[in-house]
């Protein structure tokens, strides 16, 4: 594919994503894989794959983002996922607002100005509560596939409150609820509610400036969007590829480097 002019790679804690953009900055190619322990090898494999697609990487700048961005030696530069997510989402929607990114092991809320600049941000990356790991941990205990969790949770009206915000203690609470014969779907709904309440607390710190935009792998779960709308009273909007917003933003920065060498703004 010859349309790729710039690349962005997002080395997250759970998944690694690479996105190629064309001269207009439009996403035209991507790969997404689960993160492997040896990030450098995985990145090299991604780049080999990219070479097969574009021929040579000589004139294609690469910007790295995500927690592992420092490990991407091949990158022209690195930019934080905060700035990259804002860039990617702004490109997708063309307006500012409040972006909520719920990733595998962290979550963040970013205030974006009408011009696409980061105005403010908060992150939760010290505690698994409020991240994908919270659901993942309990999904395995409930023997429900991850991609079915949201639908299961939305299939019932009744929900049981999960009082533990801690992922580990929540798991113990779930075990206890199962032992008391509480239906799995009601537990799942309660778990989603717990995660969302945690996320809303972060959103309130930054302050909601509509619209509420979502990104990150976890938002593919339909219960997340529904409950977030319920809790905030705001309509939420989803990009076409929620998991690729960081990598897309990085690729857009790479395109700026290609075009005029301008700095990150």
């Amino acid at each position: 594919m010859s349309g790729i002019k710039a690349l962005g790679i997002d080395v997250g804690s759970t998944t690694v994503k690479i996105v190629g953009v064309d001269t207009e900055g439009k996403m035209c190619w991507h790969i997404l894989e689960q993160a492997e322990p040896r990030v450098e090898d995985q990145v090299e494999r991604f780049l080999d794959h990219t070479r097969q697609v574009v021929g040579t990487l000589d004139r294609i700048p690469l910007v790295a983002t995500g927690y592992g961005r420092g490990l991407v030696e091949q990158a022209t530069r690195s930019v934080t996922e905060i700035t990259c997510h804002a860039k990617g989402v702004y490109r997708e929607f063309g307006h500012g607002g409040t972006l909520v990114d719920i990733g595998g092991q962290d979550s963040k809320v970013i205030g974006i100005s009408p011009e696409g600049k980061v105005l403010d941000f908060v992150m939760n990356d010290k505690c698994a509560a409020g991240t994908g790991r919270f659901l993942e941990n309990t999904a395995s205990r409930l023997k429900v596939p991850l991609d079915r969790m949201g639908d299961e949770a939305l299939s019932v009206v009744e929900e049981v409150p999960i009082s533990s915000t801690c992922t580990v203690f929540a798991e113990s609470e779930v075990i206890s609820l199962i032992a008391h014969g509480v239906p799995v779907a009601s537990i799942l709904r309660g778990l989603h509610r717990s995660l969302i309440k945690r996320t809303v607390a972060m959103i309130r710190t930054v302050g909601i400036v509509p619209p509420l935009m979502l990104s990150g792998g976890v938002v593919l779960n339909p219960a997340i969007c529904r409950l977030l709308e319920e809790e905030t009273g705001e309509k939420v909007v989803l990009p076409r590829y929620p998991q690729l917003m960081g990598a897309h933003g990085a690729a857009l920065f790479a395109l700026e480097i290609l075009n005029d060498g301008s700095q990150v703004s």
Binding site: Y67, V79, T80, E81, I82, T83, K117, V118, L119, F121, M123, D125, K126, V264, S265
Partner: peptide
């Protein structure tokens, strides 16, 4: 003190400052 998290926040703040 979590160095990785501190560095990430500082990097993002620096970018925000332009």
């Amino acid at each position: 003190f979590s160095e990785e998290q501190v560095a990430n926040r500082l990097d993002a703040f620096i970018e925000m400052l332009g």
